[in-house]
Design a protein around this nucleic acid. Structure first.
Length: 824
RNA sequence: GCCCCGGUACUCCAAUGGCAGAGAGAGUGGUCUCAAACACCAUCCAGUGUGAGUUCGAAUCUCACCCGGGGCACCA
């Protein structure tokens, strides 16, 4: 009985096995291995403080697969590093009169220690930090490649501005009108900034989502589709009186052109200030000033009334010949389509509201259903007033359904040279420059003579000047501008006085290519080795959180395609499959300091041990679901692991004993479990895999206590299988068991047991006999019974005969060997 | 407003057209213990959000609605 209470000391085993693993290095990825290669990747962390529950979950899940691949005989690349540029370090440096590197590298050391304690199968020999000059040298090199190909360029345009962080933001970093990072309300500024031409790949980024759909979460694919936002429509030219250039608008409803009664252009567009007449200029500029002061939140509010200014010019409707006023407004976006829209109040609710406020005419061009009660009608219906009754026009689409009306109109416009069918995307180019210090400097020199001059490759990296503390205070322009001796350089082309670009790159640039760098992390002659990239990649499994659904994941896809077109890699897509893990929450709410419901990973590890915490996170739910820490039981995990471990002490046979002489019933459970576990891991149903392992433990316990006993070879086989299954989730316990079973370390690399197919076949199965879909009898039959035999057996069963009760049998459905359904 | 995902015992979750329960937690009762913890045994607990449909048969497929989570949102 005392054996049953035996336990092992988790803290001691953690220390013990870490030393062994450090020595054996079981997870070093060998570039030259003849084994088939797999690339497993988890989003690398930003080094803010220590690791938290979220890191623990994502790495535990990801490690199941990485370790499974090793066991299955693959050579696995499973690297880890740090996404170590970013604002928190800079803000900490300002607070503490320090250098951002102090904060950054201190936290990296802390997190590295935690990762190692956590027992993840990372290949630490490949680690790097994106803030290392040896890494950002290549970030800069890639920027120059993009620049060379016209994929990185500067333009002046209204941009998102975070007043708190004092820097510009990419579209993707503005969430509900607020800064994704700090929550401040975003405003607009007109600035010259650097962009990546993501829109050049809009169509391909969209098309490839079809291929990713089966192996990526629906959520992420759906979000990206929305974000890219393809729409089909037309460009239409409207002639403006007294102006050579027409106003070109983008519309998805060219068929409603007859209902155009005014034009609207974005107030903050160059077009608006170009069009406005002198008489209207004062009014226009006052309005524009008012709009500029608005925050994004105010602008996005759909409830507030429409505003605008008449620009004093008129345009001609090309199909009706009507003269229409041209207005400037803030409800048209400067950076979508052409920044100008044809106002069709009958078919567009926003135009309806505008027309109502401004007293402009409203014409319907689509016949709404009789019971339609809304204002503008944008649904299906026959075209009307195209042209209006009694009027003639060069085009007549009356009576046509929307799709036909559209195509007919486009054909007409093209024929007349007044417009053309076109495709438009919601996706904008990626604004990548930032007015902050702790990032990769943009390797461009601005010369009054030669313009934008790339820093010559042999002068990379452009290292950050040493700035600290108050030097880094945000002031709306980059802190790098304050380092005069760094800014002033000779132009590489003419040798004359020139200045370095003082902006740094968005940190998402760093993480857009880090998965390439892992294949040759120490190569100082190139960003990464193409041969190794093609050998290891693309990433077979990427695990991370949904918060990056349209940020990192889209940028990384864009980078991969651009790099491919430069001939640097052969992949089309970076991540063959993507698993998005849920969040760890507590008591139904996100963990946060203000709610006081935070759970410290360190405390949990202290209390329950690494293995129990990992097991709890893997077992709690399907990986995509959130885990509420209040719903789970790390204590239960501890008990299970002890119970599993205790099995290894009850095995009395010697290592290497032939299991084929052992108890068949237990062997069947073992082999069935191993077989199912393969499918379950491969389909990422780790929680069920753990449940199957628990069943095997329970069955083995029974076999030892009230079955063939601990000396039976089948018991050894079963317990070894448990150790191997647990090696995916609870590496310390698995090693302890393996050692106790008389083996040498490490269980992590012993290989997946060969499943004996013969043991997967049942001798007999229970067939269910249903009458009217209700179970009336169970028959024990051979698994390969024929349908005819099974039907005969069912009809002969006394219980069945009684249940039929002499009624005529209308139909018999037989699904051998599991089921017979009799319909009377 | 549009789009995506999900609703199964007290709780977390299994069951991929075929017996609703694999696994776990909590509860209750017991064995063990001086006692507790651990361990072990037993036990309580749902007809699958609601309504209709398809089918011999539906948690599973279809439609509508309700609830929850997420994405987009003045994108013309």
């Amino acid at each position: 009985m005392s054996d049953e209470r035996e336990t092992y000391d988790t803290a001691a085993t953690e220390t013990k096995w870490r030393a062994v693993w450090d020595d054996l290095q079981p997870f070093r990825a060998d570039d030259d291995s003849p084994r088939e290669k797999k690339y497993a990747l988890t989003m690398f962390p930003y080094p803010s403080g220590d690791l938290h529950m979220g890191h623990a979950e994502v790495t535990a899940l990801h490690d199941v697969v990485a370790r499974y691949w090793w066991q299955k005989g693959y050579e696995v690349l499973n690297p880890m590093g740090w996404d170590s540029f970013g604002l928190p370090a800079e803000n900490a440096a300002i607070r503490n009169d320090a250098h951002p590197a102090d904060y950054t590298y201190g936290n990296i050391a802390t997190q590295l220690e935690s990762f190692q304690r956590y027992g993840v199968s990372f290949d630490w020999s490949r680690r790097f930090n994106t803030s290392d000059p040896s890494y950002y040298k290549w970030t800069q090199w890639l920027f120059l490649k993009f620049h060379e190909k016209g994929l990185a360029y500067r333009k002046n345009s209204p941009v998102n501005w975070c007043p708190n962080d004092q820097t510009v933001l990419a579209n993707e970093q503005v969430v509900d009108g607020t800064c994704e990072r700090c929550g401040a309300e975003v405003t607009k500024r007109e600035l010259t900034q650097w962009y990546f031409r993501t829109t050049a790949y809009a169509q391909e980024l969209l098309d490839c989502l079809d291929d990713l759909q089966p192996t990526w979460s629906d959520k992420v694919v759906n979000s990206q589709r929305h974000w890219i936002g393809r729409s089909e429509g037309a460009h239409v030219d409207f002639v403006v009186a007294g102006r050579e250039e027409p106003i070109t608008v983008y519309t998805t409803r060219p068929d409603t052109i007859f209902g155009t009664t005014f034009m609207v252009v974005a107030v903050d567009s160059a077009l608006a200030s170009d069009l406005v007449t002198d008489e209207r200029r004062t009014e226009f500029e006052a309005y524009r000033e008012e709009v500029r002061k608005e925050t994004e939140i105010e602008r996005l509010s759909t409830a507030r009334p429409k505003t605008g200014v008449d620009l004093g010019v008129t345009a001609t409707n090309p199909v009706t010949g009507q003269q229409m006023p041209v207005w400037a407004t803030d409800y048209v976006l400067a950076d979508y389509g052409t920044g100008a829209v044809m106002g069709v109040p009958g078919g567009d609710q926003r135009d309806w509201e505008f027309a109502t406020v401004m007293g402009l005419p409203i014409v319907r061009t689509t016949q709404p259903p009789a019971d339609f009660e809304g204002e503008a009608f944008s649904g299906e219906g026959p075209a009307i007033n195209s042209p209006a009754e009694g009027e003639s026009a060069p085009l007549d689409i009356n009576g046509l359904a929307v799709a036909e009306a559209k195509s007919t109109t486009i054909a007409f416009l093209e024929e007349q040279g007044l417009g053309r069918g076109t495709v438009n995307f919601r996706l904008r180019d990626w604004l990548l420059s930032r007015q902050r210090y702790w990032g990769a400097p943009i390797p461009i020199i601005h010369c009054p003579v030669d313009g934008e001059v790339p820093v010559p490759e042999d002068q990379l990296p452009v290292e950050l000047p040493e700035l600290r503390g108050a030097d880094l205070k945000p002031k709306g322009t980059s802190p790098l501008g304050g380092a005069a001796e760094w800014v002033d350089v000779a132009c590489p082309t003419c040798g004359g006085p020139a200045k370095r670009d003082t902006d740094t790159m968005d940190t998402f640039v760093d993480s857009s290519w880090y998965f390439f760098r892992y294949v040759s992390p120490h190569d100082d002659t190139q960003a990464f080795d193409k041969g190794l990239a093609d050998a290891w990649g693309p990433v077979d499994l990427y695990v991370g959180g949904d918060e990056h659904a349209v940020l990192h994941l889209l940028y990384a896809r864009f980078f991969t395609k651009a790099l491919r077109d430069m001939g640097l890699v052969s992949w089309d897509e970076p991540f063959s499959s993507y698993l998005s893990q849920g969040k760890v929450i507590n008591n139904g709410r996100k963990m946060s300091k203000s709610l006081g419901n935070g759970v410290s990973l360190g405390d949990q590890l202290e209390e329950f041990g690494v293995d129990a915490v990992r097991l709890t996170l893997v077992f709690a739910s399907p990986p995509e679901d959130n885990i509420d820490w209040a719903d789970v039981s790390p204590g239960g995990s501890v008990r299970f692991l002890q119970r599993a471990w205790r099995l290894s002490g009850d095995v009395t046979s010697e290592p290497g004993v032939d299991p084929s002489a052992g108890d068949t019933a237990l062997r069947k459970v073992t082999h069935k479990t191993l077989h199912e576990a393969e499918t379950l891991v491969e389909s990422h149903r780790f929680n069920v895999m753990v449940a199957r392992t628990m069943e095997l433990v329970n069955a083995t316990r029974k076999a030892i206590d009230s079955g063939p006993g601990g000396s039976d070879p089948a018991v050894r086989e079963a317990v070894e299988a448990v150790a191997i299954l647990l090696s995916l989730v609870a590496p310390y316990t698995a090693e302890e068991m393996w050692e106790r079973l008389g083996h040498q370390p490490t269980v992590a690399r012993v290989g997946w047991p060969v499943v004996d197919e013969a043991l997967l076949v049942e001798d007999s199965v229970i067939a269910v006999v249903q009458i009217q879909g209700k179970v009336r009898a169970r028959l024990e039959v051979s698994p390969d019974i024929s349908e005819a035999d099974l039907e005969a057996a069912a009809m002969a069963d006394a219980g069945v005969v009684r249940a039929i009760d002499g009624r005529p049998v209308r139909k018999v459905v037989v699904r051998a060997p599991k089921l017979v359904n009799i319909v009377v």
